[in-house]
């Protein structure tokens, strides 16, 4: 129960951060990705601000080994840089550049009642479903 409440609070704060920073607005994200045009560097400062706060927390928790609610730390263990990581990043980046949406902002903008964000989010869910059905056949996990 406690972990549900803390997750809800974290999601809410995350969403407010996306709204405050302007990152729930695709126009602003595309302004960052347009480095050869009139460039809006805001997204870089959003990342810097986020990492400045979360990096110390990650380093502290790594040393501690468990969460404050006495649960295990469930951090990714895969350190292998493989084809899936690179091809996945490429496809994600192309989609991000096409519409200016990544998953978090699309969900927040859907919550704001933006119909186009909801359409993007539903297509994103479909893309995840296609991955589940087909990816292991198309791109083996190990070459």
């Amino acid at each position: 129960m406690k972990t549900t409440v803390t997750a809800l609070l974290a999601g809410l704060i995350f969403g407010l951060g996306l709204l405050l920073s302007g990152m729930a607005n695709p126009e602003k994200v595309l302004g960052f990705l347009d480095i050869t045009g009139a460039w809006d560097p805001s997204l870089a400062l959003v990342m810097a601000g986020a990492i400045a706060v979360s990096l110390p927390a990650f380093q502290w928790l790594k040393g501690r080994g468990e969460s404050l609610l006495k649960g295990p730390l469930q951090l990714p263990t895969n350190t292998h840089i493989d084809r899936r990581l690179v091809i996945g990043g490429l496809l994600f980046g192309i989609g991000w550049g096409l519409a200016g949406f990544c998953p978090g902002p699309a969900i927040v903008a859907s919550g704001a009642g933006q119909e186009k964000a909801l359409v993007f989010t539903l297509a994103m869910l479909a893309g995840m479903g296609i991955f589940r059905l087909a990816a292991h056949k198309m791109i083996p996990a190990r070459e």
């Binding site: 091809i87 996945g88 990043g89 490429l90 496809l91 994600f92 980046g93 192309i94 989609g95 991000w96 096409l98 519409a99 949406f101 990544c102 998953p103 699309a106 359409v119 993007f120 989010t121 539903l122 297509a123 994103m124 869910l125 479909a126 893309g127 995840m128 479903g129 296609i130 991955f131 990816a135």
Partner: peptide, 8 residues
Amino acid sequence: AGLLVGFG
């Protein structure tokens, strides 16, 4: 874009 972001 949504399909690419979801799959990718």
